[in-house]
Nucleic acid binder design. Sequence first.
DNA 1: CGTTGCGTTGACGCCGACGTCAACCCCTAG
DNA 2: CTAGGGGTTGACGTCGGCGTCAACGCAACG
Lengths: 147, 147
Amino acid sequence: MRIGELAERAGTTTRTLRYYEARGLLAAARDAHGYRTFGEEDLRLLRQIRTLRENGFELEETRPFVECLRAGHPAGDSCPDSLEVYRRKLAELDACIAELRTVREEVGARLARAEIEAAAAHAPAPRCALAPSEPPTPREPEEEGRK
Amino acid sequence: MRIGELAERAGTTTRTLRYYEARGLLAAARDAHGYRTFGEEDLRLLRQIRTLRENGFELEETRPFVECLRAGHPAGDSCPDSLEVYRRKLAELDACIAELRTVREEVGARLARAEIEAAAAHAPAPRCALAPSEPPTPREPEEEGRK
DNA sequence: CGTTGCGTTGACGCCGACGTCAACCCCTAG
DNA sequence: CTAGGGGTTGACGTCGGCGTCAACGCAACG
């Protein structure tokens, strides 16, 4: 199998495969014309990489899985190094989710405050005091030093 | 106030300020020697930018806030465009969090499965059948075609 | 007078994971 | 013979937000 076929079967591009080879993730034999030659195991290997990358793993993080497969193990995550990468990624994901939630709260609060301000600017007269119509906020004091 | 002082007071670098000016986020007057000159309002403006960037806003997304401040409004989020950016960012954050959670579950499941496999490889004899000691998985069948 | 220490512009570096282009080689079908 | 559809290497482009020179100007201090 040559690079074009492998790329198509793996749902990727030849550029990507060449890049992976350059990174040492893919090992290609060469035929008489210098063409890269691949086998079925390379396809499984690529599927492993793709699955991981879809889950947000960096290319380098797939290396233990690749090496595990190449060592003859039935799955890329049959080796301790791969499990370690899983665990690190889980911790990373948890930390990221936690931070995003914090930020979400922060931004949500800011939006809420700003919306209240905006509403106050539109309907400024507090009619709870039964007072007669006062001047409804004199249109911004024109170049106010600080709030 | 010149660029060094502003950078220090804003907790950033001169490079950043020049970059912001190039992006049109900061407008600097020049003195007799061609030096940039800033005022206090630029400091507030930079604080607005920094707050937003700390919350994951891209530089371009801070533009409405900056323009809002420059238009004389008391806060960067006093304008509808800014509120719109808030809302978009909230939606973005929610989507991102949801996806990360999905991925987290996926990775967690993979880790769990792989750990079970690993445990099975270490203590392979299912002793529930009361059978005598069988050969505990014959060391991988040496170059298996496919699983 | 030289040496700091501020400022200026311009331009390249970085990071990851490729996309894209150029210039070339190889085989096959018409 | 030519065109077309593989393959090859090498190199530059992308994106954001700056970092990091380089080479210069201007001012004050000792």
